[in-house]
Design a protein around this nucleic acid. Structure first.
Lengths: 139, 139
DNA sequence: CTTTGTGCAAACGATTTGCAGGATG
DNA sequence: CATCCTGCAAATCGTTTGCACAAAG
């Protein structure tokens, strides 16, 4: 068991989550990728070589990890939820052609002043979503 | 038939859409409200007094209107699509408690420079989503 | 050993689709 | 009168749930 593995185990325990092979696999997989996979993509990827987790358990693992604050849900297209192990504030870019999604560093934009909102609203956080074309789709 | 009605009819025709009672009703309804109703809410509202449109037709009307560029889909929560007749660029506020959504004027934030993105991405538009609490939810 | 998680399959809710009849231009 | 739209119901897709068994602490 490598260093990273131990860190993952500790992260789960710190949040009061029982460490199961399925939960570990889901979190480790999410940490290892920079795209924002759908549940379906996760299930396929996890069970590529040998069965690791059922679909229902992936859903429940994602829910537990999300409630623990270890991952976050990303909603950028209709019909599917995507998941992201990067819980630090950041922005997103989405290709309108192929649907590719990637993170934009928080520092890419100057901080926005939220005091220009109509009085009565109590803002807590914000994010910018940029739509456009990614490299392969610019033909 | 009032002035607004005639404008709506013209808008549909200009986009090459056939003017049907159902399509007209969906677009007029969306234009008349500032929230961002779900399909379910639209269906109920439209048929409140007497039957106007089936659910399947509301879906198809929304699709046609969206493809014509008269309305846009708003994705701010999981599981449901909401629709907005305001197709001008603008931002959104979403209450994390009650789910209330409202528009934020485009001018509320200074324009963001999109040239800080990684080379290769071709940005076309962006929007800011602010999360927080609305008036009634601040207890 | 007590509690919580897993897997299966059935249930669910939002959206889509096939098709026959009807309205639009 | 050719084309496109509507309404109904069945189908589909992502997600949730109920429950018996298994694993974690």
């Amino acid at each position: 068991m490598g260093l990273t593995s131990e860190i993952i185990v500790q992260a789960l325990k710190l949040k009061g989550l029982r460490v199961t092979p399925q939960r570990y696999a889901v979190y480790a997989n999410l940490l290892s990728r920079c795209d924002h996979p759908t549940v379906e993509q996760l299930v396929v990827d996890l069970n590529k070589n040998f069965p690791v987790s059922s679909q229902a358990t992936v859903y429940s693992s994602l829910k537990a990890l999300q409630e623990a604050g270890l991952i976050r849900e990303v909603l950028l297209e209709e019909g599917v939820s995507r998941y992201d192990a990067n819980v630090q504030p950041h922005h997103h870019f989405r290709c309108r052609q192929c649907g590719h999604i990637e993170d934009i560093d928080w520092a890419a934009f100057p901080p926005l002043a939220l005091n220009c909102l109509r009085p009565g609203l109590q803002p807590e956080r914000y994010e910018v979503t940029v739509h456009g074309l990614c490299d392969p789709c610019q033909l």
